[in-house]
């Protein structure tokens, strides 16, 4: 079977898988982004069992990464667990929404031995706790950081630099967007 044929089989596999997941884990949202990538949303307390099922029964043995999207305006974080099935050459992103107030999530370090590294980073960068995750309170990238977690949307990088570092004489900053407007398309008169 050629790659195109394999792709078709895998697309059908993904559609059936999403239907199974919806039935078993009450996934409230399913999104097929492309032939080999879908996203599912599960409830916070069903995440662990959903990941366990995908890993042990559906062949999604590879955890590519764990990340989070901060929806500050709606008051929640969206965690994303990206898994991969080598046999079917398909990715699935399992997503779960958690509140921004005292955020906490179940640890997955017992499912993937590398899971704790991602959780440690998310604790430091977003303040999300993963009780029971090894070394989750140890510093990861930052050292002696005493501000709010720097990847939160409310953390203002420009203000941080103004507060922390002295301005050097003889240097002037440019508004990048304005500079681009002035210089990028002068002949087209677009701005």
């Amino acid at each position: 079977m050629g790659y195109a044929g394999l792709q078709l089989v895998n697309t059908m596999f993904m559609q059936e898988l999403c239907e199974r997941m919806t039935r078993q884990f009450d996934c409230d949202q399913v999104m097929h982004q492309k032939d080999d990538l879908s996203f599912l949303r599960v409830d916070r307390d069903r995440l662990e069992s959903a990941l366990m099922y995908l890993k042990t029964h559906e062949g999604f043995v590879h955890l590519s990464f764990v990340t989070v999207i901060d929806y500050i305006e709606d008051g929640f974080f969206r965690l994303n667990y990206m898994l991969y099935n080598y046999d079917k050459a398909t990715n699935i992103g399992v997503q779960v929404d958690i509140t921004r107030e005292n955020p906490s999530m179940h640890s997955i370090h017992h499912l993937w031995a590398q899971g704790w590294t991602y959780q440690r980073e998310l604790k430091e960068m977003y303040g999300i706790d993963f009780p029971g995750s090894p070394r989750v309170d140890e510093e990861f990238v930052l050292e002696g950081w005493d501000g709010i977690p720097p990847m939160l949307r409310e953390f203002d990088t420009a203000k941080f630099c103004e507060d922390r570092f002295a301005k050097r004489d003889g240097r002037e900053s440019q508004d990048i967007k304005q500079t681009m407007r002035d210089n990028l398309y002068p002949e087209r008169g677009e701005s």
């Binding site: 492309k34 990715n91 992103g93 681009m180 407007r181 990028l184 398309y185 087209r188 701005s191």
Partner: peptide, 16 residues
């Protein structure tokens, strides 16, 4: 189109 006015439709993807 003019890069200054790019707005990418809402969505998410993973490429590798």
């Amino acid at each position: 189109p003019n890069v200054l006015h790019w707005k990418i439709p809402a969505g998410q993807t993973y490429v590798k």
